[in-house]
Amino acid sequence: MPLSVDNVSVSRGNFRLHVDSISLSGGEMLGIIGPNGSGKSTLLRVICGLLRPDTGSVRIDGKDISTMRREAVARKVSLMVQDIPAPFALSVDDIMRTACYSNPENKNTVDEVLEMCRISQFKYRDFNTLSGGERRMVMLAATILQGSEIMLLDEPSTFLDPDRETLMFRIIDDLKQQGKSIVAVLHDISMLYRYSDSVCMMRSGGCIAFGRKDDVVTEENLEKTFGIKFMRYDSPEGRRFAYYL
C-alpha cells in the first residue's frame, strides 16, 4: 500500500480528529467528503506531515513519515492547498521553481506541465493578476510538478468554470493512469462518485464510513454525514446524487 493511515488522532483546541484506518493503492483516488469543519483539511495536513499526529502513524510505502526528513516527505507527497498568498509579484514561472524544490530535475518538465494544465500563456505573468480559476490551475500545475507519487488536493475544483473543471478531472484521471495516488477533498458528490475509487466520509473529526465507493456512497451514509436527505438517480451519464431543498 503506498499510503496507510492507522489510528491517527490530532487535537487542535476544542477540535479532535480521529481516524482508525484508511489506505490507498497506487493508481487510485480516495475521495473525502463531509460538512465544513469535519476535519477534511486537517486529515490532509496529517497525511503530508504538516501536522504531527498525537497518536498513530501515517505510512508511505510502509515507512512512517514522522521519521522522514521534510524533503524526503515532499518527494513522496504533495499538497495542493486551497489558496496561496503572494505578497510580492511572483510570476507563474517563479512559483514553478519553488515547486521543484525537492526535485530540481523536474524543472525540465515545467513547459510540459503548464501545457497540460493549459496555462502556458501565463508563464511570465504575475500570479496576483490571475483570476481565481487560473490561480487554481497554476497551483495544480505546481502540485504535479513536485512529482510525488501521492497527491493531496484540497477542494481542487473550487472557482473553476465547467470547462476547466472538466479539464482538471481529466488531468486527475491521466495521473491515475500513470500510477499516481490521489486524495481529494470534494464537495460535489456526483463528481466524487464518478472519479473516486474509494471514499471516506467524515463528520465532526471522525471517519464514519470508508471503503469502495459503491459500498460507501449511499443515501443512508450521506444522510448520516450531512444530516439532510439525499436522492440517488442513475442517468445514462452515470450515477448522480441530489439533496432535497
Binding site: 518527494r75 492547498v81 519553488t98 524544490y101
Partner: peptide, 20 residues
C-alpha cells in the same frame, strides 16, 4: 533564495514542497 520564494507563498506551502 529558493527557500525565501517558497516562504513568500506561505509557511504551509513551503513545508509541503520540502523546505524545513
Amino acid at each position: 533564495w529558493k527557500e525565501m520564494d517558497s516562504l513568500q507563498l506561505g509557511e504551509e506551502y513551503a513545508a509541503s514542497v520540502g523546505v524545513n
